[in-house]
Amino acid sequence: MRRIDWIDYGKVIGIYLVVLGHTNLFFSFKDGIYIFHMPVFFFISGYLFSFSRNPVYKDFVKKRFRQLIIPYVWINIITYLFWFVLGRHFGDDANANIPWYDPLIGALLGNGSKLIHDVPIWFLVCLFVVENLFYLLFKRIKHFWIGLIIFIMVAYLNYTFNPYLMPFSFNTAIVAMIFYVFGYMMKEKEFFRKSNVLYLIIALGILIWASILNGRVEMYKNFYNNYFLFLLGGTAGIIFIVNICLYLSSWFGDANWIKYLSNNTIIISGFHLMTFSFIKAVMVYILSIPLTVLEGKIGVNILFSIISMILCLPLIFFINKYCPFIIGRKFK
């Protein structure tokens, strides 16, 4: 399959928004990020999926288990050990009296709200569930719009009437399936081939309006406030980001550093919170800078998240060169 340049830009922007969203931004700015940054990743995953390249379900499951669940296991082990030795003794966790076994239970259940040591990796389990559901349910469906509408309603009913978080982020997977199917359908319709400034402006306006009106979204907890506003804001955010990325790819083309970051978003997602701890330790214990300088500041937290991404680069190099099995890859 030919590489799609705008996808790389989309993944890099998406992972940066994930990192930025975990800083101490003020909540209204976070609300704008949270309403669409994870839907973008599910959309891209659906856009990249192809039944013709994955004709046998068993082979597909094996491949995605290696690419998603193996990294989930290894990243859990590494970040849990970091949390057990250091993380739980400093910062907010030091005052929370969290039992040592709670994160392990969370890792086994695959629920983001229980992954105390590394919340962002809930996405790996959730995406694995989404892709299995999609393959089994949509393999022989001709009219994808019908399936999409059914999932919109099923997800609404589950969100409204089921207060319990199910194992392996299954509740969230039902909602995420909507964006995954949307991505697959847009690829099949060849909708996002050229940037459109009108779409970009309208989508941005809807995104801002929906995020202000809806407030906080926490997809890993299956919490969306107003469910339909979340879907609207998430879809608008996807259209906005895609058009931004189409412009970037047409202006800057096939940039190697963008491809490099795009290929390693799992590492950034899994380990950026560890870099947060390192940066904060340097600030407090070496530079004597109080952490209060981060509270609610946009510029400072943008810089903080950029530094975090930069600190992930040596880790990316080390894992790819010396232990690629951590992210389900083979030695070159």
Rank of each mutant, 00 (worst) to 15 (best):
I310P: 04
W122M: 07
P324C: 00
F134Q: 02
Y199M: 00
R140H: 12
V61I: 15
P71W: 07
I241T: 15
W257K: 12
C245P: 03
N226A: 08
I15M: 09
L108Q: 04
L109W: 11
I202V: 00
G270P: 03
L148Y: 08
A176R: 03
D31E: 06
G205C: 00
I241G: 05
F230M: 12
S288T: 07
Y260R: 11
G32D: 03
F304T: 12
D5S: 15
F27V: 14
I116E: 03
K62Q: 15
L200V: 01
I116F: 10
R329L: 10
I149H: 10
S52Y: 14
S50Q: 02
K330R: 15
G296M: 03
Y322V: 00
K221N: 13
M274N: 03
V129C: 13
I289K: 13
K187G: 08
S249E: 09
I268Q: 09
F278W: 14
I13K: 09
S249R: 12
Y80N: 07
I75Y: 08
Y57S: 02
M185I: 14
Y159T: 01
I146G: 13
A94C: 01
I279D: 06
F318I: 14
R88M: 04
A281I: 10
K280S: 13
I326W: 00
I121K: 01
I7D: 01
